[in-house]
Structures are given as C-alpha cells and as structure tokens.
C-alpha cells in the first residue's frame, strides 16, 4: 500500500479537503490493511462510530468487488487507487482500477428481492452491492482510458459537538 502526499489544497479553503489518497494491491489482505489506514484517517474528521463503521463497510464492499471481479487473474503493483475528500458533510470516495469493465460498462442492478424461501436455498453472495446502495447517497461509474472509476457520495455528520452531546 502506498499513501500519497496530500495534494495542494484548493484556493481560498472552500474546496474539498482531502482525507486520504492511497493505492493498494489487489488482494483481500491488502484491502484489510488499507481499510485500517483509511479508518484512522477518517476518524480525524468523522467522530461518530456508527458513521465510521458504515464508511468502512462501503469501502470494503467496493474494494472486494474490484478485487474479485475487475482484477481477477490480473497482477501488477497497486492496481487500485482510492481517494477520499470531504466538503461540508459530503464525503466523496473515488475508486480507480485498471481491471476489466463492468459488463456492458454499467453498474450491476440494485434490486434485492427475496420472496419467502427455504433457508437452504438462500444465496451465499450478491449482498455487496445491496449494502453499498443501502448506505450511500449516490454511486456513479465511468469507464475512461481503460480505467474503471467509481465515485460514491455519503453524507456524514462531522460535527464533533453534536456527537459528544448525544
């Protein structure tokens, strides 16, 4: 995992503030290590533990999806980059990888329907996208220059006083 230096802040302090910017290898272990680093950085701007848990889960599901689908069978150093910025209460997570595009270059469907079923016939996967959509405000995908670029927006409270009063 490589942590990049913060990029220059935008002029006049009104632009988004960078929380982290790093790149990582495409394995589940790399993902686990990166999540720990990101959570530490996030905890300096987000003080609510539940919000931190939710952001961590969204990052985990997104990165797992990249590792398991986009990068299957590919090698190379640190093929995933991830950055996080905060503007007001809008947390923006941008994931970029050089793996295979989503089929048809669109996001998988978000529907998560399950009728009454025999528990023994339950699916053992397919929960990841549902979790991402449940916990985020917007998810957008773009395929550009042979790169996948996924942008996720989550609104989070960054008010320390609010949370300590509760």
């Amino acid at each position: 995992m490589i942590a990049h230096s913060p990029r220059n802040q935008t002029d006049s302090g009104t632009g988004p503030a960078q929380v982290f910017n790093l790149s990582l290898g495409g394995t589940a272990r790399n993902v686990r290590d990166a999540l720990a680093t990101c959570r530490t950085r996030l905890s300096t701007v987000v003080f609510d533990q539940t919000a931190l848990d939710q952001i961590e889960l969204v990052m985990a599901e997104t990165l797992n999806n990249i590792v398991e689908h986009a990068l299957t069978g590919q090698s190379g150093d640190n093929p995933i980059s991830m950055s996080c910025t905060l503007k007001g209460d809008a947390l923006s997570l941008v994931f970029q990888d050089s793996g295979a595009p989503f089929f048809g270059s669109t996001l998988p469907p978000t529907a998560f329907e399950r009728g009454p079923t025999d528990p023994k016939s339950l699916p053992e996967g397919g929960f990841g996208w549902h979790l991402i959509h449940s916990l985020t405000d917007s998810v957008s995908y773009r395929r550009c220059d042979r790169l996948n670029r996924l942008t996720i927006i989550m609104h989070v409270s960054t008010d320390f006083d609010d949370k300590t009063r509760q």
Partner: peptide
C-alpha cells in the same frame, strides 16, 4: 466487530 458480505455469505453457507 466487522463483517462484510463475504463473511455473511460464509455464515449462510455454514447454515446451509
């Protein structure tokens, strides 16, 4: 303190 959809899937598989 942390479970993702892979972990959830593994628990479902255990049950099945």
């Amino acid at each position: 303190v942390f479970i993702d959809s892979s972990g959830l899937g593994a628990i479902v598989a255990t049950m099945k």
